[in-house]
């Protein structure tokens, strides 16, 4: 691991410097994570009076639990939908903004602020806007002949949470695409233009392929975002319903652990999620390393 050529020789000081970070990490991150792993091998009754070691039973149980499999499918649909919607819209907006010189920064300011809105607040805003009785959107949809009801219709509920989660993520993706577009050498675009390639062809054959590292990076980040940070969106709106149509894995860990008090199963689900995050982080880092060598 890299250090400086010249360093200080203190023996004790570095430990003091690193102690606070290490203490917080060990107490609030590593220790609970180990607890989750340990707990996932135990079965405890809801009152915590008796505990027994059950090996991999909790894991076997979740793979056979239809509501867990449902949550898995819902999570995949939700992640793919949010990533697609927010990446496509952000790319369109970034390409448009990049083609304008004077007004680019004004549009950027007007587009990035939703990043600062809490996912929970975004959820409440969409919950209100789509409220079946007083909301504006259901009213407009009724004019088009569609009866919107996210309280009863699973598809409507899924659309609602996808929109609420994507809304916030567009600004993030937009910034990264804009940075990616600006790092493409102008000479390439100009050469293509001289060769007679129109704007559409230039985008398809030059700009988009050169953006692929950014797109891939955003894909991973967006999947991580929808898998973990959208807890608040779900909790503030549909709460996993109707009939589990929007019950994503993170939300299920919470409800099974805190409300259902099924600690063993909740812990096993936590461990599965941790494995998923570790895999995604690994992919992200491998990619970043490759990217740095360019």
């Amino acid at each position: 691991m890299q250090t400086k050529r010249t360093i200080f020789n203190s023996k004790i000081l570095p430990y003091w410097l690193i102690l606070p970070q290490l203490a917080v990490t060990l107490i609030f991150f590593v220790w609970p994570a180990c607890q989750a792993v340990w707990q996932s091998f135990l079965r405890e009754d809801a009152f915590g009076t008796s505990t027994q070691f059950v090996g991999f039973d909790n894991y076997v149980a979740i793979t056979q639990d239809s509501s867990y499999l449902n949550a898995l499918i819902v999570t995949v649909i939700f992640s793919v939908a949010v990533a697609t919607v927010s990446i496509v819209l952000a790319l369109v907006l970034a390409v448009a903004a990049n083609s304008l010189l004077k007004s680019r920064s004004l549009y950027t300011t007007l587009l990035v602020w939703p990043y600062a809105v809490a996912p929970a607040v975004a959820g409440v805003l969409f919950w209100f806007m789509f409220n079946p009785t007083i909301g504006l959107i259901p009213y407009l949809l009724k004019g088009l002949g569609y009866h919107w009801d996210d309280r009863l219709n699973g598809t409507d509920a899924m659309i609602l949470v996808v929109l609420a989660a994507s809304w916030k993520q567009i600004s993030y993706n937009f910034l990264f695409f804009l940075a990616g577009l600006q790092s493409i050498p102008k000479a390439l675009i100009e050469a293509a233009a001289i060769d007679g390639a129109g704007p559409v062809k230039r985008f398809r054959d030059i700009v988009f392929p050169l953006l692929s590292p950014t797109t891939f990076f955003l894909l991973v980040v967006n999947v991580v975002y929808t898998m973990f940070d959208t807890f608040a969106v779900i909790h503030a709106t549909t709460q996993g319903g109707p009939n589990q149509a929007t019950n994503i894995l993170v939300y299920k860990v919470f409800t099974d652990g805190f409300i259902g008090l099924d600690l063993g199963s909740s812990a096993a689900q936590s461990v599965v999620l941790m494995v998923i995050v570790i895999a995604l982080t690994f992919i992200q880092f491998r990619f970043v390393e490759r990217n740095v060598q360019y």
């Binding site: 360093i7 290490l22 990490t25 607890q35 973990f228 993170v250 860990v253 812990a267 936590s270």
Partner: peptide, 29 residues
């Protein structure tokens, strides 16, 4: 970065772990 001490590598990896464990996934413990 500025010191060399035993377990430096280990400490670095322990800190790295926090990146992988969002609070949502280990909420109960």
């Amino acid at each position: 970065v500025y010191f060399r001490f035993p377990f430096r590598q280990l400490a670095f990896w322990i800190i790295f772990v926090t990146l992988m464990l969002p609070v949502e996934v280990r909420i109960v413990p």
